[in-house]
Simulated assay, not measured.
Amino acid sequence: MRAFEILTRIAFGLASLVLMVLAGALIFYAGSGVWESFRVPDRSIGATALEAVGYTVIATAVFDVGKYLLEEEAIRGREMRNAGEARRSLTKFISTIIIAVLLEALVTVFEAGKEDPRLMIYPTMLLLAGGLLIVGLGVYQRLSADAEVKVRDPVEDD
């Protein structure tokens, strides 16, 4: 059983490092696209910059997933020390995903608004999904904080 745990941690560690390298590659690609738009006169700097923001947002989310896997699965293992630690870790992770979804929605709104108003369905759905994620995170925070208090201070029925 111990060998499987070590193998699993190595696999999660490698996967997280690959994700972090890929996130770096996305940021490099976004930066090189912006640099190229300054050098080539017929490329639109605005569109390229918006595209670079989208790539950077995705790269940030991918990097955070890699960091999460490295910290929670490869280094510390699966088990959290307590419910509060698990809540904070999951909240931090989901918050990054929410930010990525909402920033992608914002970038897509600008892109779609310039091209065709009929293309606004996708960014609108992203905004709604981001809003639902925020509400879901709030509900999770409230319920898990209440449960954490109940576990710490059980009320006796006398």
Rank of each mutant, 00 (worst) to 15 (best):
R88P: 00
R43H: 10
A145N: 07
V107H: 08
A15P: 05
A15H: 04
L69V: 04
F93L: 14
T108F: 05
S32W: 12
I27P: 00
L137M: 12
S37A: 06
G136V: 01
G13V: 04
A47K: 15
V34N: 06
I58C: 00
G113H: 08
I94D: 02
V65C: 10
V21W: 10
A49R: 11
D153R: 07
E73R: 15
R118W: 09
L127R: 04
I58Q: 01
A15I: 13
W35K: 11
D116R: 15
F28G: 06
G13L: 05
T124W: 08
L19D: 06
G46F: 03
G24N: 08
D64C: 07
T91E: 10
M120V: 03
L133S: 08
P117E: 09
Y122S: 07
M80I: 00
A83Q: 12
T56I: 12
V53A: 06
M80K: 07
E156P: 03
D153H: 14
S95A: 13
L50I: 10
V21A: 15
L50Y: 07
A30F: 00
L17D: 07
Q141F: 06
A61G: 14
T108N: 06
D64R: 11
S16P: 04
K114Y: 02
L14S: 14
V139D: 02
E79W: 10
A49D: 02
G13M: 05
I99N: 07
F110V: 02
S144P: 01
A47R: 15
G113N: 13
A145G: 02
M125P: 01
G131P: 02
Y55Q: 11
Y29R: 08
T108I: 01
E36K: 15
L102Y: 06
V135Y: 02
S16N: 06
L50S: 05
E73S: 08
A129Y: 05
F63P: 05
G24H: 11
A83N: 09
P117D: 06
I97D: 01
I58K: 00
L119H: 09
V149H: 11
